[in-house]
């Protein structure tokens, strides 16, 4: 049944239906139970499924992941919440050396179906360590699947697909889009949804290709609207999956438009956009009319929130890059 849900509610609904269908799924993290999570993504789940399946944990991120690994070893499917992007680093060893590598180390014997939800990105006026975009660290690590949803419909299906995955999934939630609303069917069958790792063209266009994920997809759509007023059409691709990358739609698009601009909030140096630029250059070299350009956060620590509007890519920065691309 169609209903109008925020992205946060769409996640909640997806988690709820997954937990109802599979009693091995446990949700764990700081404040996820009684409070329902600081963004209310797990609101009501503890009432529905009990304190043994929606576990308020001590404040220790390494332990959230480390114990989830142990739970997964005995057959559970933990869904961990890291409360904010900037709090994930204490768990870095457990994610990168333990969670990611166990299948490989065990010769494929040990699967760790652990989903790590991380609200990420800026734009909400938060204090420091609450607005970061750490996705590249995890994309660089073999053994992890890394995805990010950009809208309520994807949030609902992708979280269900992530929980169903037999591999660890790092699930980046665009925190400034938590309150975006859309009419979706939260009970839509998963087999009708695009696969978890498929990228998707969300707006067709002819003059240049914008590639984005998570919070920047809407910004790119806004940029495309603005460009349309100038008589130019931009194609917008929502990557959805950051590792593995599904570049086929990107390459097909670039072969038509000849121009590619990649947009994300994370800094540019050794980033997802760097990988995409390299791959597009390698695989669509003869189609390119201009170098692949990037619109990203600056290579600084995330600034104080009074400055974040200057730090974060916005419509103007994106259009500036499109203009530069078109001028080649």
């Amino acid at each position: 049944m169609m209903s109008t849900l925020t992205l946060a509610k769409a996640l909640n609904s997806g988690l709820r239906s997954a937990m109802a269908a599979n009693e091995r799924i446990v949700v764990m993290g700081e404040d996820v139970g009684r409070l329902g999570g600081v963004f209310r993504v797990t609101d009501g789940l503890q009432d529905a499924f009990g304190a043994d399946r929606v576990i308020d944990t001590p404040l220790a991120e390494s332990a959230i992941i480390g114990t989830a690994i142990g739970l997964a070893m005995r057959g559970f499917r933990p869904v961990c919440e890291i409360q904010f992007d900037g709090f994930v680093y204490p768990a870095f060893d457990q994610i990168v050396s333990q969670l990611a590598k166990m299948r490989y180390r065990s010769g494929g014997r040990v699967a760790l179906p652990v989903t790590v939800r991380i609200p990420f990105g800026g734009g909400i006026g938060a204090v420091e360590h609450h607005s970061e975009s750490p996705e590249a660290y995890f994309c660089h690590t073999a053994g992890l699947r890394v995805v990010s949803c950009s809208n309520p419909a994807d949030a609902n299906t992708m979280i269900r697909q992530a929980v169903a995955s037999d591999d660890p999934v790092i699930f980046f939630e665009p925190k400034r889009r938590y309150w975006d609303k859309a009419e979706i069917d939260p009970d839509a069958p998963l087999d009708a949804a695009p696969p978890l790792h498929a990228s998707r063209t969300v707006r067709a266009g002819a003059d240049a290709t914008l590639v984005a994920y998570g919070p920047m997809v809407r910004t790119c759509l806004d940029a495309a609207d603005a460009m349309a007023e100038e008589g130019r059409s931009l194609e917008v691709i929502d990557l959805r999956s950051l590792s593995p990358l599904d570049l086929d739609p990107v390459l097909a698009s670039v072969r038509r438009t000849g121009r590619c601009v990649v947009v994300h909030e994370a800094p540019s140096n050794v980033s997802v956009s760097a990988e995409i630029a390299a791959r597009v250059s390698e695989d669509a070299f003869y189609s390119l009319e201009a170098p692949v350009l990037r619109v990203t956060g600056f290579d600084t620590p995330y600034p104080p929130s009074r400055l974040e509007e200057h730090y974060l890519p916005d419509v103007d920065r994106i259009l500036d890059a499109v203009d530069r691309s078109l001028a080649f």
Binding site: G70, L71, G75
Partner: peptide, 10 residues
């Protein structure tokens, strides 16, 4: 130690 703790919690 954390894996063991999670396993035992399970």
């Amino acid at each position: 130690a954390l894996h063991a703790t999670g396993y035992a919690m399970g």
